[in-house]
Amino acid sequence: MIETNAVYVIVAREFKKFIREKSRLISTLARPLLWLFLIGGGMSRLVPAGENVSYIQFIFPGILGMTILFSSIFSSISIIWDKEFGFMKEILVAPVSRFSVVVGKATSGMVLSTFQAVIVLCLFPFIGLRLDPLQIVGVILVSAILSFALASFGILLASFYESYESFSVIMNFIVMPMFFLSGAMYPVKLLPEVLKLVSKLNPLTYGVDALKNIVFPYETGRMSADFSLFTDLAVILTLSLVFVLIAGKAFERKQ
């Protein structure tokens, strides 16, 4: 049902274009740096540290989550560009199933986002974090699953929009709130009830929480993770599957 040739070549195309566009690489990496060091650095003067974790360390999993969120959604939204500039037709008339196209796109989102998350991950020594190899592998695995889920979610969004004017709508009304309500910048458990509820419906929350579980497993109290690692993984794995299936269906519509 899934044609590997199609998945491979779609991923190869995205990767090649990504590597070629130096400015995109730099700007996607600049954002997490700004947040981590300017906001994190400044806020840690204001926010008292937890038991073992300072504020700048606390937001590190959140910043990884942000990197993954932006790059996954951006990668999927490129479908709208492809529709607008005609390249999508080349893919749609090819003898490959729509579902393979969706899986290919989601996989490219996964590859690109994980690649960027790994680069951001390399910053951990600079903020005084200590991670053993197993933790590093754990972070990379969670990043991969989370990016697949978010990229599929992005494809689902992209299937409803025809023109790239909608890009800013998606950014302002979906992506930014998702980031702020994911527990990336402040613990979900400290939020007012209403926002807590919204956070619990946010897929990114569980991804960030899984990363928190892995990066500081022994932390308890205010700055600890909000759910168990098992819950986190179960949610993001399920969502990956659900999103990619719905995105596949949304993509199959024929007039």
Binding site: N5, V9, A12, R13, F85, G86, F87, K89, E90
Partner: peptide, 23 residues
């Protein structure tokens, strides 16, 4: 197609390569 459906950010050869894999 009536409107170009090439990927302008790829080279000519890469466009053909993409197609060859897809088919």
């Amino acid at each position: 197609f009536q409107d170009s459906s090439l990927d302008k950010d790829l080279t000519a050869r890469e466009n053909l390569m993409f197609h060859a894999y897809l088919y």
